[in-house]
Design a binder for these strands. Structure first.
Lengths: 229, 229
DNA sequence: CATGAAATTACACTACGTGCAAGTTTGCAC
DNA sequence: GTGCAAACTTGCACGTAGTGTAATTTCATG
């Protein structure tokens, strides 16, 4: 009776989930750096060795949330029509992130680890990994148009900049709203993402975001400054 | 007889240098991950414990080169006139990197570590650290103009994008030219940096770099593709 | 149920990173 | 120079990370 997912795969998924849950619980309770892999394993009901069969480190286990978050955005990007301007595709993909269910784990993770060097390092790695995937996705898209010569520099500079803008928007949002997930807060995040992509699309011509033809960009970002960054 | 640098500081600088030299030598000889901190310490003529008084890990010792490299660029940025367009300042600062003496250590480090996860992680951290510093520098610059409201999102998105473009240019350059430090190769790097900043300044409007008013941008980047990335 | 593949586990081992308490070097005042 | 205090180095011990290996258990399939 072959189901969609075999027993083995279900077990693995459950174990994986148990590990990340246990890691997050311990992070909440003890704070970063105050618990060991053994603690996680015990809390997840597995052996220390099994933990390492799933993740190479504590940080990797926690960063899997960020990976899931970014994979979500990447999936959105891949589904955009190929003839759409690429910056518009990126904007639309990033917009999907301003969803309560999506950002919630990342927001908490951010607040819990923002002052921890070794953990933010894994976050960096996750963003970088996403950049590489965007490069692949964009390369495939351009390769679809026949006869086009793909400029590797263009791809990499673009993908890196898009990710940087997404990261900048989230950083500012976290600094401004903390872990607030209210509709108003998420609206701020959306506007920040729009504004950041607006800056990118207009070549960073002016610190005051010029309202694009399609974006009714209220200058919500220019009124607040001196945030805790 | 108080010299410019006291004996203590000279000794520390020498030890620090001995450590990084030893680490680089071992990296060349054994390859990444095939030597220990103890090996470095012995090669540098110090104890294992002393190594950790200077660097928190092997990767940190090696990443100090990248830090020096990027600090150089940052210094250039800070020296640009405050009324200059900020993207032009960034372009000028990045241009300083295309200097044989400056890129040589970084180029070698890159070729030696490009397929090593744990080492490139430290490189990422160095670039991120530089981003934060650029944000500070740019914030100070804008704060200089009286009455200006500093848009934190603009700052962070801009700094991140500039760094991403610099990184993209170096990545493409390494992929294309390897560790070649000939004048021709460095000219390629300069052109890549110019083109990347051109893309950024024009809002990534077209994959073909539009020759800016001041840049005689031959489209050197569009002819080659399928590089080993 | 029998059999083999896949996953978990215990165990051992190397290396990392740090606290601590010595010992050594340097700077400074007398 | 002598003495002293601060800075630096070193050895030691300890807990933890991460990995290889071999034995054991769990699952799928005939």
């Amino acid at each position: 009776m072959p189901e969609l997912l075999s027993r083995r795969e279900l077990n693995k998924a459950a174990t994986r989930q148990a590990i990340t849950d246990a890691a997050l619980t311990l992070l909440r309770a003890q704070g970063p750096g105050n618990f060991t892999v053994e603690d996680i394993a015990e809390s997840a009901g597995i052996s220390r060795r099994t933990f390492f069969n799933y993740f190479s480190s504590t940080e990797a286990a926690l960063a899997s949330m960020t990976h899931g978050f970014l994979d979500n955005a990447l999936q959105q990007f891949r589904q955009r029509p190929a003839d759409e301007p690429i910056l518009e595709s990126a904007r639309a993909a990033l917009m999907q992130l301003a969803d309560p269910m999506t950002v919630a784990p990342l927001a908490e993770l951010f607040t819990l680890t923002q002052d921890n060097a070794v953990l933010s390092r894994s976050e960096l790695e996750a963003w970088d990994h996403c950049t590489e995937e965007i490069i692949s996705a964009a390369r495939e898209r351009f390769a679809g148009t026949p006869g086009a010569v793909v400029d590797e520099l263009y791809l990499r500079a673009l993908a890196g900049s898009v990710i940087s803008c997404g990261k900048a928007a989230m950083d500012v949002w976290f600094a401004r709203c903390g872990a607030d997930l209210s509709p108003a807060s998420l609206a701020v995040l959306r506007q920040l993402l729009i504004d950041a992509m607006g800056h990118l699309g207009s070549g960073f011509g002016s610190p005051v975001p010029a309202a694009g033809p399609s974006a009714t960009s209220t200058t919500a970002t220019t009124h607040l400054n001196k945030e805790r960054l």
